[in-house]
Simulated scan of single mutants.
Amino acid sequence: MTSPKQPQSANLVSDGDLRYANLDERKRKRMISNRESARRSRAKKQQRLDELLGEINKLQSDNNAIMKKIDGATQMFVGAESQNNVLRAQLTELTDRLHSLNSVLHIAQEVSGLAMDIPEIPDTLLEPWKLPCSVQPITTSFNMNMF
């Protein structure tokens, strides 16, 4: 015996069942869409991370190259400063010798009575940056042109 409220055939779908089917289909499509969107987002994020890591490596490499140049320039500066100190010491010694020799010449002139042409020591020897100098090309060694 069948009741009058039950459908006569099992193949018939009620309006409520159809709504649930449509809702389930939309939910399934949305889930698929969300998964695909999340996958694209993760791929994009990974690509950006890879780009940033590459940039970090490049910047570290550039930084290392710059640090090597700075070290080389520092070594050249220390070498030049050392040479300047040696040259200053030599200048002082030679200037003192020149003063001594001039003193000897003045004594010899007084003792002999002969007139001698004894040049005065120019002040520029004591201030070498004021020396007149001829224009000469400045040459550098290969190591000095490292920049």
Rank of each mutant, 00 (worst) to 15 (best):
R40K: 09
V13W: 01
G79D: 13
I70A: 06
F147G: 11
Q75A: 15
P128L: 07
P128S: 06
S82M: 15
T92G: 13
H106P: 03
L49I: 09
S14I: 00
S82N: 15
D96Y: 14
K29G: 02
L12V: 06
T140P: 04
L94Q: 09
M1I: 06
V13K: 03
L49D: 06
I138L: 08
R26A: 02
Q90M: 09
T74H: 10
A89C: 05
A43P: 00
M1F: 06
N63A: 08
N57H: 09
K68R: 14
E93C: 12
N102Y: 09
R26W: 02
A38Q: 10
T139F: 07
E51L: 08
K29S: 03
L94W: 10
K5A: 14
V111R: 02
F77S: 10
R40S: 07
S41D: 09
Q83I: 15
N34D: 10
I66W: 13
T124M: 10
L18S: 00
T95E: 11
R39S: 08
H106C: 05
F77I: 12
D17R: 03
S33C: 08
N102V: 11
L98F: 11
L98T: 09
A108C: 01
R35P: 04
A10C: 12
L18C: 00
E110C: 03
K130F: 12
E25L: 03
N34R: 12
S37K: 13
P7M: 05
I121Y: 03
A108N: 01
R40F: 07
A108T: 00
F77A: 11
G72S: 15
A89I: 06
E25R: 03
K5T: 14
T95M: 12
S103M: 07
E36I: 06
G54D: 01
A89N: 05
N64S: 10
N145H: 11
L101A: 11
P128I: 08
I107S: 05
T2Q: 13
H106T: 04
L105F: 00
L12M: 05
R88H: 08
Y20W: 05
Q109A: 00
A38G: 08
A65G: 07
V104I: 06
P122I: 01
N85I: 13
E25Y: 02
D15W: 01
N22F: 01
V13A: 02
A80L: 15
S14K: 00
R48G: 03
A80Q: 14
F77C: 11
M31H: 10
N85P: 06
G54L: 01
F142M: 15
Q90W: 07
V78C: 09
A38K: 12
E36G: 04
D96G: 14
Q75I: 13
L101V: 12
P7S: 07
T74L: 11
N145F: 10
I121S: 02
Q136D: 12
M1Q: 05
R88S: 08
R35D: 09
Q8N: 14
R30C: 04
Q83P: 12
L12F: 07
L52D: 03
S37E: 13
Q8G: 13
S112P: 00
G54T: 00
N63R: 08
V104M: 05
